[in-house]
């Protein structure tokens, strides 16, 4: 498949990139390109200008604070997340999930920023970043602004990044004492297109003190499940209690069915992955990749 005619520019700074994006109505940033180039190849969307931001040094770094907080540049690749000692140490689940995105070639090109800005409900990182309480830093001509990950995703292929703006980094706060993350996927094949995903962040000390449960693929955006979170709070950190809490997931979900999974199956799988993600977080299950 071949793209429609399109212009290409490669700015040297974020400021130049913002200017190009602001000046051209049909411009889009090109980072890893692992989704955008497919969209253009299939001529699903058409653009006038691609602004290549993949080499901007300002977007390529991983900074670790002494407390374990991370600031990850938007153009850091999945492979870099997977192999970063800082990420491995501070947020092992983030490294692990990034290391199971599709394949080596995609991990070598795809970026954390692209994974979020596409806002494809099947993407790997959004539910995890919501669970981890990440903050998204957006640059615009008026200066930077910050948006909580939980407010970043607006719908299918829509985010808080407005026209002429650019996601520049993702800040991930340190894990609180006693907190741990879990992640579970049901996918078509190994490390492939997801049917249901869940990410969890659980603070427990024999008893679950606080739990965040974020479901993905079952709604347009990754969403915390308040019912299950509430049912977990104050319960014993063990599988039976988690399973009971997961039963709260049900008719409140209205997933769309498609060739990869019916709505009924996705709803049932949301329950399974939520349970598994929480169990993993409390240390009762191994890594759950599908």
């Amino acid at each position: 498949m071949l793209l429609e005619s399109v212009a290409y520019a490669r700015p040297d700074t974020v400021a130049e990139a913002l200017q190009l994006l602001a000046e051209n109505e049909d411009a889009a940033p090109l980072a890893g390109g692992q989704s955008l180039i497919n969209v253009l190849k299939h001529r699903v969307a058409s653009l006038e200008l691609l602004v290549d931001i993949s080499r901007l040094e300002e977007l390529r770094g991983i900074a670790a604070a002494p407390d374990g907080g991370l600031e990850i540049g938007a153009c850091v690749t999945y492979d870099e997340l997977d192999h970063s000692p800082e990420v491995r140490s501070a947020q092992p689940m983030l490294a692990d999930v990034a290391g199971h995105i599709e394949d080596q070639q995609i991990r070598d090109a795809g970026t954390i920023g692209g994974n979020c800005c596409l806002s494809d409900p099947t993407n790997n990182l959004p539910p995890l970043l919501v669970a981890l309480g990440a903050t998204m830093v957006i640059a615009s001509s008026g200066g930077p602004r910050e948006v909580a990950a939980s407010d970043f995703f607006h719908g299918y292929f829509a985010t808080a990044v407005g026209e002429g703006e650019l996601l520049t980094s993702v800040r991930v706060p340190p894990l609180a004492a006693g907190a741990s993350a879990g992640y579970s996927t049901v996918a078509v094949g190994a490390d492939s297109k997801a049917i249901a995903r869940a990410a969890a962040l659980v603070r427990a000390n024999g008893t679950i003190e606080e739990a965040r449960v974020v479901l993905a693929c079952v709604s347009p955006i990754p969403a915390r499940h308040a019912g299950m979170e509430e049912a977990l709070r104050g319960r014993a950190a063990e599988p039976a209690a988690v399973a009971a809490a997961a039963e709260r997931i049900g008719a409140d979900l209205e997933p769309l069915g498609d060739a990869h999974g019916s709505a009924e199956y996705r709803r049932a799988m949301a329950r399974v992955v939520a349970r598994r993600a929480v169990c993993q977080a409390i240390g009762n299950g191994g890594p759950q990749h599908g």
Partner: peptide
């Protein structure tokens, strides 16, 4: 056709 590319037609991989 619902599976008109290798994106939707999951050809078996080395991991599967």
């Amino acid at each position: 056709l619902q599976q008109a590319s290798f994106y939707d037609y999951h050809a078996i991989t080395a991991l599967d």
